[in-house]
Every structure is written in structure tokens, then in C-alpha cells.
Design a protein around this nucleic acid. Structure first.
Lengths: 152, 152
DNA sequence: GCTAATGTCTACCGATTAGATAGAGTTAAG
DNA sequence: CTTAACTCTATCTAATCGGTAGACATTAGC
């Protein structure tokens, strides 16, 4: 499961991309239903990683620093949630040897999770904020809406 | 990241499959370098879910209740770590609506993670303990040389 | 230069989970 | 009836998650 924080981050970036212009934290929080003070921390971190830009003072706000089609889901998730790999010994950004396994080559389960990691990266590193913009604009494409009707 | 507990569970099942016969907790713990008391809890849970069988008393031990090629990674992970889906609203075993998203159809990020979930399931629900047995044969671990497996 | 509105920073907090450990109880073989 | 195994329940400690709080810094406009 990805964290709530990561969901907020992605949604905030989508909001910024949709706007095109700059948006105040409070406005993003209101539109996307995100706790305001929590969102502050998230945007700060996005800023530290060069994803967004901010202006202080009256008329301040946030805007994207990169074009939406260059911001990948993988990039955001790695910043907020850490490695995508399901095992530390498969992570590219935070490789750690598994303390309890003798050699990686013969680890019975590593191969399996290597395939999981690869396919997750395939999706997450190729999908961008811009893609989410498109899909939310299309709204109801007959994609897999038949999976489950929302029961509200 | 999958939990340490799930790793232990998978490795224990591989050990049982390799053995073919029944094995004592202490023996599995020693071979796979797993804290013994922790492994007890894990195997108990595997037993409750009908994956393994146990015998008490002297000469007791654990053995697989299902053939290794019927025990999938997905099955074990769902027991130990819960849903494989990266969002609660994408889980099949523990569906929950995302509290903060208005409608699932228009959720910008749901579609993306649906693809991640699908590809993860593709791997995890098709890969079995028996597959890991095979792959551990490929690498030659300088383990106790007295072990010979039937070739399938 | 004052004020109001905005972002920045650091600290904290309650609940939950991860990763175990402890120990008393039950079962079965010899 | 002893010994060696599994079973169950109760902790324990540290970290993490999701969020609050509040002091501080910056800027626009009067």
C-alpha cells in the first residue's frame, strides 16, 4: 500500500498541473481535500527535490518547476514513500543487503520479487502527472468501469 | 516493501518443500536463520490457513498440507502482509473506499495503480513455492552436500 | 514602515505496526 | 512420567503514519 502522504502529493501535483498557473497551499488543500498543514510538509519536500517552485508572501503560492509530462509517479513515490522495490536488496535508490540471506544469487525469493519490482517500475516510471491529467479529463472512458460499480 | 515476516514465511515453506518430509520448527529456524519463536507464530498462522499441517509431541513437526506447486506467493503474502493492491480501493481481499476521493471513476491516480496491482498479481499469483525450488537449484549453494532433489 | 497574507521550519503527539521475546500450557513417544 | 515437541496469549521496544501546533520569514500593498 502506498501512503496517504504519497496520494496527497500526487493529487496536489495533478492540481498544479491542471491549473497551469500558481496555486496557494490553502487552495490546493481545499480542492483536493487534504489537511492543510500536512500538505505544507509535502510541498516543502517536493520543493527540496526540485519538482515545484514556491513564492512567499502575499500573492505567494506553488507552481510546477518541471513540465507535468516529466514528473513520473515513480519519482514522487520514491521521494515520499522510499524505494519501490519490495525487497531492500532490489532497491536502486536504497540498496541494502538482506541481513539474513547468505548470497543474493541463490536467494529463493529474490528472483520472484525482482520480476514484481521490474513490472512496477515499468508502469510507475513511464506514467507521468500529465497522463493523469488526460485520464481525468476523459472522465469516463469505457476502460474497466465494469470491475465494480461504486457503491455509495 | 514486504515484511520480514513474509520473507520468513516464504523461506520456511521453501524449506518444507525441499525436505518433502516433516521438519521441526527448530530445524527450519536453524536452516533458514529465522528467530525460532517468531517462526512459531508464522507457522501457526500458515496452519490456520490450511497451508501446512503439524504434529505435536516428540517426533512432531511441520509439513506442507498442499503440494508446493499449489502454494502461490500471492496467497502467502495476503495472509501475512495483507492486500497486494497499492490502494485500499483496489484490493480484492480487503476493499475499502478511499475516504478522501469523491468518486473512484474520476480518481486521477487509481487507474495508474490499478495497472501496478494487476502486474504484481500477474507475477505473484502465478509463481509458486515449487518455482522457487527450481530456481534455487540453478544456483549452486555450497550447502550441506547431502541434499539431492528429484529433477522435475 | 506597518499589516495582512502567504510560505518555512521544527517540534511534538497519539495510534498503530514491525519484529520480535517470554512463558505457561498441551500433546505424544518411549 | 519425563522429555521434546507444538500452542497460545501476553507482553515489549522502536519505528512509522497521519497529522497538529506554533513561532518565524518574506512579500504586496497601503
Amino acid at each position: 500500500m502506498i501512503s496517504q502522504k504519497a496520494k496527497y502529493a500526487l493529487r496536489a501535483l495533478v492540481a498544479l498541473a491542471k491549473e497551469g498557473d500558481s496555486l496557494m497551499i490553502g487552495e490546493i488543500a481545499a480542492r483536493k481535500n487534504i489537511p492543510r498543514k500536512f500538505l505544507e510538509q509535502i510541498l516543502l519536500e517536493m520543493k527540496r527535490h526540485g519538482i515545484v517552485h514556491s513564492r512567499r508572501g502575499k500573492l505567494g503560492g506553488y507552481s510546477l518547476l518541471m513540465p507535468p509530462e516529466k514528473i513520473t509517479y515513480g519519482q514522487v513515490l520514491r521521494i515520499i514513500d522510499g524505494p519501490i522495490a519490495p525487497l531492500p536488496c532490489l532497491s536502486r535508490i536504497a540498496y541494502r543487503r538482506c541481513a539474513d540471506c547468505k548470497t543474493e544469487e541463490t536467494c529463493e525469493i529474490r528472483r520472484v520479487f525482482a520480476r514484481v519490482a521490474e513490472s512496477a517500475r515499468e508502469v510507475l516510471d513511464r506514467t507521468t502527472i500529465a497522463d493523469s491529467l488526460d485520464s481525468s479529463l476523459l472522465g469516463d472512458e469505457a476502460e474497466d468501469a465494469g470491475h465494480e460499480m461504486a457503491r455509495l
